[in-house]
Design a binder for these strands. Structure first.
Length: 853
DNA sequence: GGGTCCCATCGGACC
DNA sequence: GATGGGACCC
């Protein structure tokens, strides 16, 4: 069989691993997708495994799609093309969404629940805050959303959140989480975190159900394993209850989703959890030249506690990395556009180029300049198609039609386009919704519209049972809305009834939407809303309908997992039984879970994306833009050791995307939040051996270390340190809060506020203002040589401990015995990075550990 | 009671 | 630069 002939020995070994746990440490560009797909092929073709028994999990739909395609190719080439369909290849979220749909009732959800995205989630948080009489506070609502997501990523239900609360603030947040969760269930909705956590709850509750799924999918494979969070890890544990055939592929150096709850401990400690795990390292890089690879290594080697591995390539040498420094961010963008234009003229394809930046906001300059130079481009990410307001509007109607309890979406559509239902009316309806016997906003609207009897599509009758004066008043208020001429409430009610009738009658999805657009006169609404953008937005709406038609054609309710375990469908709801309801549900799920990075397939255009979006991709020529401190690494992360490690990994990911040529760009001055500021070159850029860099002839600055600041940003760093210590030691908080471990509790926020303040003070003083007067060009004449200047202050966390603690064994009251892997600062307040076997790495203040020697 | 406009605020990477 | 909330006008 020639299946394995194109694989190198470790790849081959990984592919031919059949049973038992397997950890594949796959460096950037080492062919990991190849290994996964060939292993799937090998299991089916050579090892007698049924395709239905294989489950491959990825993080993005794009990765899943690509994997399916390649599995399809491999199997087809060996005459088993039909088998590819039967393999389950899915993202964590899609996979869980499907499981959850099947067993929704076990969580107190109905079959027709909707999925809330981050925006919807924030709206619900605000509603709950209002309900609790908390003051409106934007940052507080965001913080609470963040808290809830963190808990869910940890696999914590509200109950567990309470159990793990350290202090009063935690308790309060956990209580909020509890209320939020109740409201979410009342709305018959699930947020992203719920998809995973919900399945966990079901499995925790009924291990036998987990067993049956575990017996069904006997061979599991997980891509990008370093980005799994504790909840996802637990999910995998449930799914491997009846076997231990778990093959994971990952690279700890590419872990960039810590902020999403991912924990590298999963990959660093895999063998501890799966004791007889085989470990295979893929270290040969097939993608990049050695110049690029070594530059990446220059950067990443500053991170402590990496799994030992060394990438190598046969592609010795290669073009040096070109550095361009512009006077400002506009010059930077102009350079990129012009250089791409030149290279394309010389024969390169537009599709060979990519521009990476740290934040989406940076894309604007590049878009403008690329347009100026007539370069075709596509922006990946940013505001996704499904996040556009016109798309969300249309989908909100459909979501409510399917699931009228969905309050967030109900509020979205109640007066869009205007039905003259304003704030006061909405408040009345919301009060009425709380009257027993009414219960939801939808039913309040039906009540207000006089539809007390059940509707044709099986809604329950409305029988309000007021039990106090407030209820009576609420009902009287809502009664008063009834019967007014042109009542918007009645219109809305009629519209929802028709939509539900059409779903029950199994009309086409696009047809129903067409009807909707017509009924609400959506085009004129768009026109009145924003006359300039109406064409654009209407085109988006048409595109959505096109997507529906396409989806409808391909749709077939496919089997998913063991059929005998499906919870029996119940009820005689006409909507529930229609094909269109299932189709619509599936379409809405996909809309919620598909991100715009997933639909990037245009050839013949330059790709613009964030570094996060770039993971897993490769391009001939990469422009890595905005390589300045406070941009990359991001301001928000530069003082926390763990965060800076993550930023460094991000830089590593960016560099290793390039096949032949890497450009690194930055600007000496940049407009940020409306203010122009001088910049410092990124510390990651300075990490790269200058041997590998050449200054582009067009560069404004002829030096790598172009900064004209008198001091390095050391001053800011010291200010930070002081602020941190004050924040920690001044407020007398609970000791356990001091470790900023994988699940940073709530103190971070308090600290960062103090830090911000101190930094602001530092800048008001002699720190920042002084160099705004310095001629930005003067460093060309500076006396220091570009390379003879002192090395930068080591980044936080990477400086060697003065106490000689590194390598010491210590003990901690909660985590037990561990080994110090890194020290920053000194004395009692030194920040230690400690590896606790089996528990992963924690960052703990010196005075809370006992040094054993 | 609803609609509009202006001001203030805040700003990350994503399923 | 977007977005949301509140003041003010209709």
């Amino acid at each position: 069989m020639n299946l394995l002939e194109h694989l190198n020995p470790p790849q081959k070994q990984a592919v031919e691993h059949k049973d038992g746990p397997l950890l594949i440490l796959a460096g950037a560009g080492s062919g990991k997708t190849r290994v996964i797909t060939y292993r799937i092929g090998w299991l089916i073709l050579e090892a007698g495994v049924y395709p239905e028994q294989i489950l491959a999990v990825t993080f993005t739909n794009k990765a899943a799609g690509e994997m399916r395609e390649r599995v399809d190719d491999i199997l087809s080439a060996h005459g088993a093309g039909d088998d590819a369909e039967a393999v389950t290849i899915s993202t964590f979220h899609s996979f869980c969404a499907r499981l959850l749909r099947r067993h929704a009732d076990r969580l107190g959800l109905d079959w027709n629940f909707n999925i809330y995205d981050g925006d919807d989630q924030l709206k619900l948080v605000k509603q709950v805050m209002e309900l609790e009489g908390r003051p409106k506070d934007r940052s507080e609502s965001r913080r609470l959303r963040g808290y809830i997501n963190r808990m869910k990523n940890q696999g914590y239900t509200p109950e567990l959140a309470h159990e793990n609360a350290f202090n009063a603030v935690d308790e309060e947040d956990a209580t909020f989480y509890e209320t939020y969760q109740e409201k979410l269930r009342e709305a018959n909705c699930a947020d992203f975190g719920d998809l995973i956590l919900g399945v966990l709850e079901i499995f925790r509750d009924d291990p036998r159900l987990a067993d049956s799924y575990s017996r069904h999918w006997r061979y599991l494979m997980v891509d990008e394993f370093q980005d799994t969070n504790p909840a996802q890890y637990e999910l995998l544990k449930h799914l491997t209850r009846c076997h231990d055939n778990l093959a994971v592929v990952g690279d700890d150096d590419q872990a960039i989703y810590r902020w999403r709850g991912a924990t590298v401990a999963n990959i660093l400690g895999f063998e501890k959890d799966y004791e007889d795990a085989q470990v295979i390292k893929l270290e040969q890089n097939y993608r990049s030249t050695s110049v690029i690879l070594e530059a990446a290594n220059d950067v990443i080697k500053h991170n402590p506690t990496r799994r030992d591995k060394k990438l190598w390539t046969e592609r010795e040498g290669g073009d040096k990395i070109s550095l361009f420094t512009g006077g400002d961010d506009r010059e930077e963008a102009t350079f990129v556009a012009r250089r791409i234009h030149e290279m394309a003229k010389a024969g390169a394809d537009w599709g060979d180029f990519a521009v990476f930046y740290r934040t989406n906001a940076q894309s604007r300059q590049f878009e403008e300049q690329l347009q100026n130079w007539g370069v075709p481009y596509q922006v990946v990410g940013g505001i996704s198609f499904y996040e556009r307001s016109e798309i969300k509007d249309v989908l909100a109607y459909l979501k409510v039609a399917l699931n009228p309890d969905n309050e967030v979406d109900f509020l979205r559509i109640i007066n869009t386009p205007s039905r003259r239902i304003g704030k006061v009316t909405i408040e009345k309806l919301q009060r009425a919704a709380r009257v027993p016997g009414i219960g939801t906003l939808y039913r309040a609207v039906r009540y207000a519209a006089g539809h007390l009897e059940p509707s044709a599509v099986g809604d329950a009758p409305i029988e309000p049972e007021p039990f106090d004066v407030a209820d009576e008043e609420a009902l009287a208020d809502v009664d008063s809305l009834r019967g007014r001429t042109n009542s918007g409430v009645e219109d809305l009610c009629e519209l929802l009834f028709s939509l539900r009738d059409q779903i029950a009658a199994d009309e086409g999805l696009a047809h129903v939407s067409e009807f909707l657009l017509d009924q609400i006169n959506y085009h004129s609404y768009l026109e009145s809303d924003d006359a300039e953008r109406v064409d654009d937005r209407w085109r988006n709406v048409r595109e959505l309908l096109g997507a529906m038609e396409e989806f409808e054609q391909d749709f077939e309710a496919r089997e998913f997992g063991p059929t005998e375990d499906a919870d029996a469908p119940e009820g005689t709801d006409m909507v529930a039984e229609s094909r269109l309801a299932k189709l619509l549900g599936a379409f809405l799920d996909r809309s919620a879970l598909v991100h715009s990075t997933d639909q990037m397939d245009e050839k013949g255009a330059v790709t613009l994306m964030t570094v996060h979006g770039a993971k897993g991709l490769e391009f001939d020529t990469v422009f890595l833009a905005g390589m300045e401190d406070e941009i990359f690494p991001s301001v928000r992360d530069q003082f926390d050791a763990e965060e800076i490690h993550e930023e460094r990994r991000l830089a590593y990911v960016a560099i290793t995307r390039a096949r032949h040529k890497l450009y690194i760009c930055n600007a000496r001055r940049r407009r940020i939040y409306g203010k122009t500021r001088n910049t410092d070159p990124s510390r990651f850029l300075l990490d790269i051996d200058p041997e590998r860099i050449e200054i582009d002839p067009q560069s404004t600055s002829k030096r790598i270390r172009y900064s004209s600041r008198r001091t390095s940003n050391r001053g800011g760093y010291d200010a930070f340190r002081q602020a941190t210590e004050q924040a920690y030691f001044g407020s007398g908080v609970d000791q356990d809060a001091w470790e900023f471990d994988q699940s940073p509790p709530m103190y971070k926020n308090q600290v960062s506020k103090a830090v911000k303040k101190t930094l602001a003070e530092a800048e008001d003083g002699d720190f920042d203002t002084s160099f705004s007067q310095v001629n930005p060009w003067d460093d060309e004449f500076a006396q220091e040589d570009a390379w003879s200047s002192e090395p930068d202050a080591p980044p936080a966390g990477a400086s060697p401990g003065k106490d000689g603690l590194t390598g010491c064994t210590i003990s901690h009251s909660r985590f037990g015995i561990g080994e110090v892997v890194n020290v920053s600062g000194s004395g009692d307040k030194a920040v230690l990075t400690i590896n606790f076997p089996g528990k992963g790495e924690k960052t703990i203040i010196r005075k809370f550990v006992k040094v054993l020697g």
